[in-house]
Simulated assay, not measured.
Amino acid sequence: MNQQAKTNNWAVLLPLIAVFIWALNVAVTRYVADYISPVSISFYRWLVAFLILTPFMSIKLIREWSSIRPYLPKLAVLSAFGMVLYQGIAYAAAHYTSATNMGIINAFIPIFTIFVSMVILKDFPSKFAVIGGILSFSGLIFVIAQGSITSLLNLGGHLGDLLMIAAVFFYAFYGVFLKKWKLQIPLMLSLYVQIIFALIYHLPFLMWLGLDAINTKNVASVLYAGIFPSFIAPLIWMLSIQKNGPNRTSIFMNLMPVFTALIAYLWLKEAWTIYHTIGGIIIVLGIILAQKKA
């Protein structure tokens, strides 16, 4: 029994580590916004991940090509939503909003996923999901408005928050498509092919906007983005799902805004205000309520 308890305690650390890595990446995204363009950091992120994975995955891709080929259109769509639109828009949002706000809006992924599922999968939400979604949205509006609804009229001042909402919305589509298609291929191979598509998608933007050089001010952020949140955190997350189950694991995502705000406060010196506290509590309560089964 004692050994089993120790194993369970160790497994609880897995989702905590994954969420911390993703939260730190939000802060890194905000930090590096002053030193590299959104399209450049997005491209470099997936290029680093591609270079690391290629020695391990390229041979497997060749061997499994006949079974993967029918899934290429779906993998291309997944890459567009999850790796290009979500992450690319998030990097753009970092130029106009705080890491704290980005972390809070990121916590909205479960809510958006519920309602995108309703449209695509005809998976209609429970009354708890509807009430929780409305409650969380109210909290989000409160945070964006900085506690004053009249400030919402200043749309230019909220451009970063609106971009981040759009990014999270696209990621919700990514999750729903994953559930809808249930691709019968290994997860790491799926990730590798999606990364290849992501690099291809970036080429027109690079030709139009150019590619910033890597220098001493942005190299650490580029390496972190390409290594830790790109595949180390997803691997830890998948391991957590195996050890703890999907439901127990998903609850830990609610800690994303807490970790992000703490990192932003300690590292980026961002202020944590009363409207962040009130809005954050409302959002988290709504998310927890939305996950409650009827």
Rank of each mutant, 00 (worst) to 15 (best):
A92E: 14
A92G: 08
A92I: 11
A93G: 15
T97Y: 10
S98A: 11
A99H: 12
N101I: 11
M102W: 07
M102Q: 14
G103A: 14
G103Q: 15
I104Q: 15
A107F: 04
A107S: 15
F108M: 15
F108G: 15
I109H: 01
I109D: 03
I111W: 02
I111C: 02
F112T: 12
T113E: 08
T113M: 11
T113G: 09
F115P: 09
S117V: 02
S117Q: 08
M118Q: 12
V119L: 00
V119C: 04
I120W: 04
L121F: 05
L121W: 05
L121R: 09
L121V: 05
K122S: 09
D123P: 06
F124Y: 07
F124P: 04
F124Q: 07
S126D: 10
K127C: 08
K127Q: 11
F128A: 13
I131F: 14
I131M: 14
I134M: 13
S136P: 13
S136K: 12
F137I: 02
F137Y: 06
G139A: 10
V143M: 11
V143H: 09
V143A: 07
I144D: 04
I144N: 07
A145D: 13
A145H: 10
Q146G: 03
Q146Y: 04
G147T: 00
G147L: 00
S148E: 15
S148W: 02
I149P: 06
T150F: 00
L153N: 11
N154S: 10
N154A: 12
L155M: 05
G156F: 03
G156S: 07
G160I: 03
L162V: 01
L162M: 06
L162W: 00
I165Q: 03
A166P: 00
A167R: 01
A167F: 02
V168L: 00
F170S: 13
F170N: 08
F170P: 05
F170T: 12
A172M: 05
A172I: 03
Y174W: 07
Y174T: 02
Y174F: 12
G175M: 14
V176D: 01
F177M: 06
F177C: 01
L178Q: 14
L178P: 09
K180L: 08
K180I: 04
K182L: 10
K182V: 06
K182M: 12
L183K: 04
Q184G: 14
I185Q: 07
I185N: 10
P186G: 08
P186R: 09
L187Q: 11
L187T: 07
L187W: 01
M188V: 06
M188I: 02
L189E: 13
L189R: 08
L189S: 13
S190Y: 06
L191T: 12
L191F: 04
Y192I: 02
V193T: 11
V193K: 12
V193G: 10
Q194H: 09
Q194Y: 05
Q194A: 06
I195W: 08
I196T: 06
F197Q: 01
L199H: 06
I200C: 02
H202L: 12
L203G: 03
L203W: 01
F205E: 05
